[in-house]
Amino acid sequence: MPVRRGHVAPQNTFLDTIIRKFEGQSRKFIIANARVENCAVIYCNDGFCELCGYSRAEVMQRPCTCDFLHGPRTQRRAAAQIAQALLGAEERKVEIAFYRKDGSCFLCLVDVVPVKNEDGAVIMFILNFEVVMEKDMVGSPAHDTNHRGPPTSWLAPGRAKTFRLKLPALLALTARESSVRSGGAGGAGAPGAVVVDVDLTPAAPSSESLALDEVTAMDNHVAGLGPAEERRALVGPGSPPRSAPGQLPSPRAHSLNPDASGSSCSLARTRSRESCASVRRASSADDIEAMRAGVLPPPPRHASTGAMHPLRSGLLNSTSDSDLVRYRTISKIPQITLNFVDLKGDPFLASPTSDREIIAPKIKERTHNVTEKVTQVLSLGADVLPEYKLQAPRIHRWTILHYSPFKAVWDWLILLLVIYTAVFTPYSAAFLLKETEEGPPATECGYACQPLAVVDLIVDIMFIVDILINFRTTYVNANEEVVSHPGRIAVHYFKGWFLIDMVAAIPFDLLI
């Protein structure tokens, strides 16, 4: 008679799926529990143990900040960024110097990925580790590398530091407007667009060049630039800015003055950032001319202004700041037409079709709590990747769950009947059967004279019903998954307890 339990259901295979997918890609990662103190490590794979030199037993239950890997060259700011990422709910990448158990130093890129439950609360953290440099290539500990984003994938490793954006290309926007319009339909740009040429040739750093990471940081200074100062900065030398009595002219307006920039070969870094931020506020060169004239017309309804409409929906549905990093990277690809469009465009503009998908598509409701890094690593669709929660398995109709209350009560009843059979069957065979043979035949009273025979008949009927119930009862397979398919249940029961239950259900007393 089957006594099969499996009270692990309803099970959740999400954690096993993450481990299996990460292991298949030869990654070095740990999984931490966000619900406990210090976000203790609950799993670390073999790749991480080989990377740091510690065994799994030495890593388990330690804080996922990996303070046991810190050393003299470990930056405090990087460690603080990892700790801050564990307090938030967004994906974050941090470069930090770690030390192995043998004392060797290596520069590592740590990717902190939160995993949320159905309520939107962070319950786990996945920390992925990628070695960037070994100890002989690690720089000085005073050099802070965590304020910069990861290198873009479309640049060669040897040319990542030679990417320079020439400031004269930004200063000569109005001069290039006529050349853009003359391109017409034969050019790649839309009317009114501004073409910015980027020099990728390796050259020595000069005062006129600005690194790509500095251009990325310009967006942080746009908020500090007032509207009046932006307007004066875009007017140009024809209309000098008016300053109040006793007030000095704005240095932001002076930063885009061609006369002032041409007199000296070098520009201050602050002026460069502010000038680029001011130019980015204009949607095209037409807006710059309109600002000089004193009238700013409404933005025209053409394809170039609607190019950012799908980007707005993608940004609203993005799951991490990696989408913004990807957008900034692609927006700086050289030799393309940049349409400086305000994100607050007309909502009635139709979304044009684009061959290049900048932001990841909208994630469906079932995966809105899973970050983009987890979705990318697992390579699963929205119909396959579940949320991290207890999910009731989908069972067929008329199927009994093996952990249901009805099955528990039924098993206790069958257990009592088995005990009765084990006690009274030998007793009936030894004593009652002998008395029946010696006594007179009682054929007239039937079952009324033999109450134990009636009980034995009921017990046999219950055993037959138990066999039928076992054909529709779920079970737990070797992978700790609840199986509810009727065919698989029948095959599993035939290979197991079916023969024993059938022999126990045969009414031998009635056959004798």
Rank of each mutant, 00 (worst) to 15 (best):
R4E: 13
R5V: 09
T13M: 14
L15S: 02
L15M: 08
D16W: 13
D16A: 15
K28I: 09
I30H: 01
N33K: 04
R35S: 15
N38S: 15
C44D: 01
C44Y: 01
N45W: 01
F48S: 01
L51R: 01
C52K: 01
G53K: 05
R56P: 09
A57L: 07
V59G: 01
M60T: 01
Q61A: 11
Q61S: 12
R62T: 13
F68E: 01
P72H: 05
T74I: 01
R76L: 10
R77S: 12
Q81A: 14
A85F: 01
A89Q: 10
E91C: 13
F98E: 01
R100G: 01
L107P: 15
L109N: 15
L109D: 11
V115A: 05
N117L: 07
V122S: 11
I126D: 01
E130G: 11
V132D: 15
E134C: 09
E134T: 15
K135I: 06
D136K: 15
D144R: 06
D144K: 07
N146L: 15
G149L: 11
P151M: 10
W154R: 05
L155W: 15
L155D: 14
G158C: 05
F163D: 09
K166L: 06
L170N: 08
L173C: 13
S178K: 08
R181E: 06
S182C: 12
G184D: 14
A190S: 05
A190R: 06
A193H: 01
A193P: 05
V196H: 01
V196C: 05
D197F: 04
P202H: 05
A203H: 15
S209L: 14
L210Q: 13
L212V: 06
E214K: 05
V215R: 06
T216H: 06
A217Q: 14
M218P: 15
N220F: 05
H221E: 12
H221L: 10
A223W: 05
E230P: 06
R242K: 14
A244T: 10
Q247L: 07
P249G: 05
H254T: 14
S255W: 04
N257K: 15
S263R: 09
C265F: 07
C265L: 08
S266H: 10
L267G: 11
T270P: 09
R271M: 06
R273I: 12
S275I: 14
V279D: 14
R280K: 07
R280F: 15
R281H: 11
R281V: 11
R281D: 14
S284K: 07
S284Q: 05
D287E: 14
A290Q: 04
M291K: 08
R292T: 04
V295P: 09
P299F: 03
L311P: 07
L311G: 11
G314Y: 08
L315Q: 07
T319C: 05
S320M: 15
D321V: 14
R326K: 13
R328C: 07
R328E: 15
T329H: 14
S331C: 13
I333S: 11
T337P: 05
N339S: 09
V341H: 11
D342G: 15
G345E: 06
D346C: 09
L349H: 08
D355Y: 07
P361V: 04
T367H: 11
H368F: 11
T371C: 09
T371H: 04
L380C: 07
G381D: 09
L385A: 11
